[in-house]
Design a protein around this nucleic acid. Structure first.
Lengths: 100, 100
DNA sequence: TCTGTAGTTCGATGATATTCGAACTATGGA
DNA sequence: TCCATAGTTCGAATATCATCGAACTACAGA
């Protein structure tokens, strides 16, 4: 599978990040990723169809929130916390520190 | 005109706030409001039709970001910064402190 | 090489949003 | 009372999005 396109930190767009996190499914994925450090797609699918989950990961990747790398047949996802924090200081923490 | 329904701080929903701010027009309105303290709708319309601006203000109000009160024939809008900060500490500041 | 697993991409569908003009409401002033 | 101003609401058109099945790609193991 060809490697995914991940935007550089300077390409991050605030509106896009906020939009990506305004969806409950994606916000939950990001929360779980923050707790787990990294995880495969299937570990975070919440029982949803693969195509839906794949869509949400793409939105998160395009916004710069998530980094995906291939390991064998699985995709390991992790938050791009440092880069997010460098570009938008305090933003991710402010969002993730809210309970529920 | 009947007074608007403003949600209480405990009714704020994170996803809704993020969604409201993920639109460039609304984010700009909020930025200007933060700078001005308060302003009427027409001061923030950016040349857009009144019905469009009214729509965006409604989304902002429903999310809890903006408070609107009637003064004569005009509506004065202000950010609900304290309540936002009480419910989602650091969030609004993290978003508004981003330049561009 | 065959099969299974993990995930993506495509296409369609239904839901929701944005935008705008037009009609409406409410207030203030002449 | 008449008119202008400020803003809302309604309705329709357009766009965008979420969801999902189906087909596809890539890798690992037997």
């Amino acid at each position: 599978m060809r490697p995914f396109k991940h935007p550089t930190a300077s390409e991050f767009v605030l509106e896009r990040v906020l939009y990506a996190l305004s969806d409950p499914v994606r916000l939950e994925i990001v929360r779980r990723l923050a707790a787990l450090g990294e995880a495969s797609c299937s570990e975070l699918d919440g029982g949803r169809p693969k195509s839906s989950v794949s869509h949400h990961f793409r939105v998160l990747r395009d916004a710069g929130l998530v980094c995906t790398r291939s390991v064998g047949t699985t995709h390991i996802n992790s938050l791009r916390s440092e880069e997010m924090n460098a570009r938008f200081p305090g933003l991710l923490e402010a969002i993730l520190s809210q309970r529920e």
